[in-house]
């Protein structure tokens, strides 16, 4: 955001999340919200990541473990389906991969620069030993 001078902003260092009025924000999805420039939704922490999670929908069972445990609101779920990852807000913590119960996992960490198509092409196959109950405890 532009570094305004002392006379250029709201008094009391007050911030507004939205431009204009919002009703029932609890049932309004992010894409339909009038976020103001002051909402951190409009910012990005993509440069925090060294590794990124990639999503392979072929194996996903839409269990939503990744959604519930993502600390950064970066698992995009719509109509109970896992849709993808919000790479503006994902910090690359890797929790989603850890909690993914499928075999093989539907989410895996890759180097930040990894090409998605290449990653999907080399996705591991189903392992014989069933790991589907709980995430591993390292």
């Amino acid at each position: 955001m532009e570094k305004k001078g002392w006379d250029g902003f709201e008094i009391g260092a007050m911030l507004r999340t939205f431009d204009g009025a919002v009703q029932d924000i609890a049932t309004t999805l992010p894409e339909n919200r009038p976020y103001s420039q002051s909402s951190s939704f409009t910012a990005s922490v993509a440069d925090w990541r060294i590794e990124k999670p990639l999503f392979n929908k072929d194996y996903c069972i839409d269990c939503q473990f990744c959604w519930i445990y993502c600390p950064d609101m970066s698992i995009i779920s719509r109509d109970k389906k896992m849709v993808g990852i919000d790479f503006d807000h994902c910090k690359g913590c890797g929790i989603c991969v850890q909690v993914c119960p499928t075999n093989p996992k539907s989410l895996l960490m890759f180097p930040e620069q990894k090409d998605e198509e290449a990653a999907l092409a080399e996705w591991p196959k189903k392992e014989k030993k069933d790991q589907s109950e709980e995430p591993k405890e390292d």
């Binding site: 001078g5 002392w6 008094i11 260092a13 007050m14 911030l15 507004r16 999340t17 939205f18 919002v22």
Partner: peptide, 29 residues
């Protein structure tokens, strides 16, 4: 003004400002 109970206009009060903003806010005050 800037009232938290205006539920249609959520407002954040009591932010943190560091060296890049604090001076301007105190000057405004």
């Amino acid at each position: 003004m800037n009232d938290m109970l205006d539920l249609d206009h959520p407002v954040t009060h009591g932010v943190q400002t560091e060296e890049d903003w604090h001076f301007e806010h105190k000057a405004r005050q």
